[in-house]
Every structure is written in structure tokens, then in C-alpha cells.
Design a protein around this nucleic acid. Structure first.
Lengths: 239, 239
DNA sequence: TAGTGGTCTAGACCACCGC
DNA sequence: CGGTGGTCTAGACCACTAG
């Protein structure tokens, strides 16, 4: 009859009271020994349930004071960023890319500042056009830190676009994103085959490994051909 | 000398090997009893460490087969969506809003379909303009499900914009977001005081409570005045 | 200072599942 | 079948901190 494990039932009960609003932020959660009595179990079991809730940010636990319902987090959006090839194959479309430019140079002044690089760091700069069924769907301008990914220097990125190549190869520990809308400039409009000035979605992504910048990408999507979407729940899961 | 708790040290060691790439996806993590011997501790302690890694999606645990390093997730962007008032106060700017339109009506056909509502559901429709230091910074078009939030019917939203009001009042369990770029239409351009056709960032957010739609908001930002930003690590934390 | 949560132990039984 | 992880117990000591 008690198919779900006890610690999950304890967790679900408290979670329900918080998410339903019955226990508002600041409300004190029962002490561990109270829950032990109520559920007739050992302290480890209630501790497991409460720790899971704390890990998800639903409650705050303090010694002596007990646990209280945490303030709800600020609003966040979790957006999926599809790999071009994966997105295309799911949609049953043909994906191709072209490397429009590829050159190696040293980080210039603004880059050393904004990317927090050592002066003189060697960078691989790439401009790549992504096509779905032959139609230009995104223009990517990317910088790869050759000090972090030396193998990239010998790579032409003809077979695999740089984003996919890096994702397979370099385990990243941190990423930052900026999303904004921009009018297509002359060069972007030409490559994407859209009118100059068209509203475009620009996604900038920087990726670090243990504090060192691996790559920065600036991807321009024609606004009417691309949407970033995501669905998730406040504490944890996305789907 | 062992200041960090043992279960955290076990977790950190395994985490390090995974994130550094030393243990690629599919690599078998040592069995619990191996870790018990290596760290000279009880099974509960190693189990706690491994469970935390599994909860973060870094490993997959299977009976009999042991634990293996999980495949890295697809790329995701976690973006902060600032509350207007909070954002303004942090930046030391003056925030105000005006409710441009407010009316109650029944869900029309496309809405019942796209929002998964019962036909005839009563909706509160709002159009709100947000200003920073007097300058229009966002135009919001919102629908509130009065079946889910009946108190909204008597609310004028003069003192507090609807997003903030709802966030304080309604605990939500699920949200979906769409971000895209659009050219400002005539009405948006007029309200936002920008040229018609300007590239704008459009954020759509739908929020549910236990499967029932609470609200849908479509917020238009002039593209040159707003950026969505976010920073996070692959397994868990954002900051 | 007393009571809370944080950590840890040394067992135990069980469900699952690859061999 | 046997070994794995999943769960749970009944204790223990300690660090922290509100009162």
C-alpha cells in the first residue's frame, strides 16, 4: 500500500503545502523530530526528505531555528538551445553549414577585457552560416580560445560545425548567455538573405571550463524564422 | 583538518573527474563498496554523495549494473527575468507603470485551443506600459484566468503591475517561455515611442498552477534597450 | 545553554536485473 | 543466482545559534 518510499511521501506532503500556498514563505516547517513522530520513522528518513527540499530551494534550514519555507525565486526562463543538426534531424530537414571565414589572431584589447583573457592569447575566429533545406537560418560568429582548446587549430570544421564539435569535445563548467533583438546589418542581411534592418534574434554564449574561457559565440537568427523556447518548473525540472 | 564533510569530498572528487573529461559519458563510477573502502566510511555516506550526483543528472544509477557517467544534457540557457520594480530599484532608477486597457471577456476560440482552457472561461485582459525614468521600456499584453485567480477581478493594478501582483499572490508550478524578435507594429511603436519596424525582443510567458493556466503575458521590449541575461553551470547552479 | 540541523556509523532487508 | 543500489533504523557526536 505504501508503494512510494517514505522519504518521498514526506517530501511530497511538504512540497504540496508549499506549492499550494498553504505554507507561505517564512512559514516554519515542522522540526525533524515532529516529523519523526508523525510519520513514525527515523531521523535519517525525514532528514533525507528535508534535505531534498532544501537542495531544490523550497525551504531554508538553519540550526536551532528550524526550517522555514523559502522566498520564491525571481522569475527565470530556461530556454533550450538546439544543436542545429539535432534540430534538423528531428524536424526531418536537411542541415548543412559553410565556414565563411577562418583565421587565427591574437586577442585584441577589448577582447582581453571583455573575455577576461591574458593579453596575446591566440584565438581562432570563425564565421559560419547554417542552412536548413538550403535556406540560411543562422549566422554564427565565434571565437575559440586556442590556449584552452589547442586541437581546434588543426580543425577545418568542414565536417562538423564548431558548436557541435566543441560540445562533443570540451566539458564546460559554466556558461553565460545574452539574448537581444537587433536589426540585421548589411553583412548579416546579405548572408542570411533577408532585408537589411530585419528584426533578428541575437544569442551570445560564452562558455568556460574551470574559470577559463573556452569559446564565445554570437548567433544571429532571422527573427521570423526562429524562436527560443523552454518549459520548466520553479524548483528543478524542465522538460 | 577535514573541514569539508566527507560526503562533499567524495562528491567533489567524482564531479571533478567527470567535469574534467577524465571520466567520459558511459564510464563506470566505482561501486559504493569500493568507495567505502577508499574513503573508509559507511555506505550511507557514499550513497549520499552518489545520490546528489544522480539528482544533478551527472550520473545514472542502476541496480546490479552500478553507476555510470550520464550523457551531457543538451545546451540550455537560464535567463533571469527581472521584475521591473526590482530591476529599477537596483539600478537606482524610477519605475512607473500605466494600465492602458483592462477588460473582462470570455476566452475566444483560438485561446481555448492554445491556452488549453474550457470554452467560456472568463479572462481578464490587460495592457500595461512600463516606464523607467519616464521612458517607455516595455509593453505588456496579459491575460489572467479568472477561474484560477478570482481575486484579480476586483484589482485595478494601479498600485502594482500585474506581473508583480501575481508573483506575490499565486504560487506557480510550471512555466513556459518563448523568446523571439519582431518588428514593432504600429500600436507598439506608438506606445513605446520608437520607430515603427524597430527590432524588438518579445518574451511570452505562460504560467500554470497544477496544470491550470494562471496567466499568459507577452512583453515587448525595444531591442536596443533590453537584454535577457543569465549565467549558470551545467548541473545545477545559476548565479 | 539548550535545542536545532549536519554528519556519520554499522548494521539490515529488499527489489531489481545482468549473468 | 548474486551483487547492485534503494531504503530504513537506532543510535551517536558535533557545530551552530537563538534566546
Amino acid at each position: 500500500m505504501a508503494d512510494p518510499p517514505l522519504h518521498l511521501r514526506i517530501r511530497a506532503e511538504i512540497e504540496g503545502r508549499i506549492l499550494s500556498g498553504e505554507w507561505p514563505p517564512g512559514h516554519r516547517v515542522p522540526f525533524e523530530h515532529e516529523l519523526m513522530r508523525r510519520f513514525r520513522c527515523s531521523r535519517m528518513t525525514v532528514s533525507k526528505a528535508l534535505s531534498a527540499l532544501a537542495a531544490r530551494g523550497l525551504i531554508t534550514r538553519r540550526r536551532r531555528a528550524g526550517s522555514v519555507v523559502a522566498a520564491p525565486p525571481g522569475e527565470r526562463a530556461m530556454l533550450e538551445i538546439q544543436d542545429f543538426a539535432a534540430e534538423a534531424s528531428r524536424a526531418g530537414r536537411d542541415y548543412r553549414h559553410e565556414v565563411l571565414a577562418r583565421r587565427i589572431g591574437k586577442a585584441n584589447r577589448p577582447e582581453t577585457a571583455s573575455l577576461e583573457l591574458e593579453p596575446g592569447t591566440r584565438l581562432l575566429r570563425l564565421i559560419t552560416l547554417h542552412r536548413m533545406d538550403g535556406v540560411p537560418s543562422a549566422l554564427e560568429s565565434r571565437v575559440i580560445n586556442l590556449a584552452a582548446v589547442p586541437e581546434a587549430e588543426g580543425e577545418s570544421f568542414a565536417a562538423e560545425p564548431p558548436g557541435t564539435w566543441l560540445l562533443r569535445r570540451v566539458p564546460w563548467t559554466e556558461a553565460a548567455h545574452v539574448v537581444q533583438a537587433c536589426a540585421a546589418d548589411a553583412a548579416s542581411a546579405r548572408h542570411l538573405d533577408v532585408p537589411r534592418g530585419l528584426a533578428c534574434l541575437v544569442l551570445e554564449r560564452r562558455t568556460w571550463q574551470s574559470g577559463r574561457l573556452v569559446t564565445e559565440a554570437r548567433i544571429t537568427y532571422p527573427g521570423d524564422r526562429h524562436r527560443l523556447v523552454g518549459r520548466f518548473s520553479p524548483a528543478g525540472g524542465h522538460r
